[in-house]
Amino acid sequence: MVDRSGTPLVEMQNISISFGGIKAVDDVSVDLYPGEVHGLLGHNGAGKSTLIKVLSGAYHKNGGQIRIDGKPVEINNPRDARANNIETIYQTLALADNLDATSNLFLGREMVTPMGLVNDAAMEAECRKIMGQLNPNFQKFHEPVSALSGGQRQSVAIARAVYFNARILIMDEPTAALGPHETQMVADLIQKLKAQGIGIFLIDHDVHAVMELCDRASVMKNGQLVGTVDIPDVTDDDLLSMIILGKKPASAA
């Protein structure tokens, strides 16, 4: 059981963002505690990715506040998010297709030699280490990632998010392209990171996986928060009906 008596790691309060008049996220508040996995569920277009992109610095919020460790922070771009130890696996993966896995893993944070030149050998060694843990069959270290399969690309994106000692991890459908074996490895990874006290926002369409991995879940519909529930208090069907009907079930109310 996650201890939720202290200060939350992340508080997103009354977040709103609209695109040309359409409210993609409308006054949503969610929070996250250390060592907690917080699931985000909802229809396609419900606003899940948009909400977490406010936290990762990809989008500017129109209203609301973000607190980390109880202190208000301004996250205006992805660099600010990284500075707050927030790492993100984007739904679109956000990889530079023409570069290899190592260059993508370290993009924006290259290791350099004393002369200030990028140290490709050292970075590749690190890349091989982390990929060995995530996807031992991964061998294509010298091809541009455009030559990788969807799952291999996803492994690279996951490796990039976990390599840099995140405190807050955002995973937007991290297993969408993965086979059953690799999906299980990501589930194991989530358990391991959780045990280290990392807080994780996990977006996933698989209600069953959310029930298994998450401590709490928030459901969104049409940009609004339907509700947040403790996973031990609800069933698969409760979550499904929240997603479909957009109402909190009586049992968890």
Partner: peptide
């Protein structure tokens, strides 16, 4: 050639060309 292959600037130039959004999300200005 050294800039293109062995410096951060060169790496960012090529990354931005490959996927401008990914480069931006990776914290590249």
């Amino acid at each position: 050639t050294v800039v293109a292959r062995r410096t951060r600037l060169g790496r960012y130039i090529f990354a931005t060309g490959g996927n401008p959004d990914a480069a931006e999300l990776s914290g590249i200005n």
